[in-house]
Amino acid sequence: MTTGFQQFEPPQHPKHAYVGHYPLSTSHHAPICIPLSSLFTPTTHHHSGGGFILSFSLSLSSKDLTDGFWFLNFDIWMASSDRSPGPMPPGDGSVPPGKAMTMGQQVLDKGAQLMQSLKPVKQMSQHVCTFAMYSHDMTRQIETHHFLTRLNQDFLQCPVYDSDDSNARLIGVEYIVSEKVFNTLPAEEQKLWHSHAYEIKSGLWVNPRVPEMVQNSELKDVVKTYGKFWCTWQVDRGDKLPLGAPALMMSPQDVNTGIVKPELVKKRDEKYKISSDNMKNSRANIETPKEMNPYADYWIKTGKGFAVDIEKTPMELRAPFP
């Protein structure tokens, strides 16, 4: 597979991990030519985009110079947040690996539960079931369960699980802010966030077992919010443990690969005995923002997703105090 390569500016901090969004091919050792004007000082460069990492070194001789272009080979690796894991940890096949809890451990946990306040956990006031897709691969879509804690009227924080069962796996965290707070963020930060308007209006965002009439009042506020969701455990690809770098997640949208697969919605609706279509109709009176922020749902406008790469970097060796 061949690839086109467009000139890009060097990263400001090439030794640090960063998020990038440059579309690249998956081919390995592919020959490309880069104008001399696009080369820059560091001898090794890393840039990420579309779920891939480009890494190449400038180790060239004069014979490689032809008509103002360098010809070189480079390698492309899947970004850490998208790289398939290596061999799974040994075990009996359970997910996650480990022995069943002993009776003694259960007694200890129950005792601690009675004696401790667990205040942050007890502040979780809502359960939301919806869907999300990976920013670097929108074809990978998952059902998600968010347990909301409201710190104030403009900010919610949500641990995200793969189900609402007692043995559900914690797969990530989402932060939700009001439109007012979101508009104070820098543009580069806003690109990592997604809107909730379509997700709510379409009936995909639901509070299981809560009557729609009760949900409706809350949704009038949430429809104008924005979320940033990091997935730390990619259970959909078979990971038995949280592996690799976190992956940025996007919300459903009514365009392209943002449309949730019908079979996922059908399975969810049957589980909770609900109808997303009926919810969509009942939410027709909910007003969406008059104008969406241009940097949210960045992939819709650019066709580019985000992936995270992790690189080794020198540690700060200075002591924090004399």
Rank of each mutant, 00 (worst) to 15 (best):
A245Y: 00
W233E: 09
M250F: 12
P211S: 06
V235L: 06
W233A: 01
E218L: 13
A245R: 03
P242R: 05
G227R: 00
P246M: 01
K220Y: 04
S251D: 01
P211V: 04
L243T: 13
T225S: 11
L248P: 09
L219V: 03
F229C: 00
G227Q: 05
C231Y: 00
E212Q: 14
V206D: 04
V223A: 09
L204P: 02
V255E: 15
D239M: 07
M250Y: 14
L243A: 12
N256V: 00
Y226V: 10
D236C: 09
Q253C: 10
W230A: 11
W205E: 05
F229M: 02
P242D: 07
S251M: 15
Y226P: 00
E218D: 12
K240G: 10
G238M: 03
V223N: 01
M213P: 01
R209C: 11
M213E: 12
N216Y: 09
L204W: 06
E212R: 06
V235T: 13
M250D: 15
E212V: 15
V214F: 05
G238Q: 04
N216V: 13
D239E: 14
R237G: 07
D239P: 01
D254R: 03
L204S: 05
N216G: 06
D254L: 06
D236Q: 11
R209G: 02
Q234E: 14
W230N: 10
L248G: 02
P208N: 05
R237K: 09
N207S: 15
N216T: 15
R209M: 13
S217E: 15
M249I: 06
L219M: 06
R209Y: 13
L204N: 07
W233M: 04
T232H: 05
E212M: 10
G227V: 13
W205T: 10
N207G: 09
C231F: 02
G244M: 05
E218M: 14
W205S: 01
S251L: 08
L243D: 00
P208D: 05
N216E: 11
M250K: 12
R237T: 15
V223K: 00
L204M: 14
D254V: 09
W233F: 08
K224Q: 07
W233H: 11
P246W: 04
E212F: 08
V235G: 01
D239L: 06
S217T: 14
C231E: 08
R209I: 02
K228F: 13
T225N: 08
A247R: 02
T225A: 09
V214Y: 07
T232Q: 03
Y226M: 05
M249E: 07
K228Q: 09
M250P: 12
M213V: 14
K224D: 12
T225F: 08
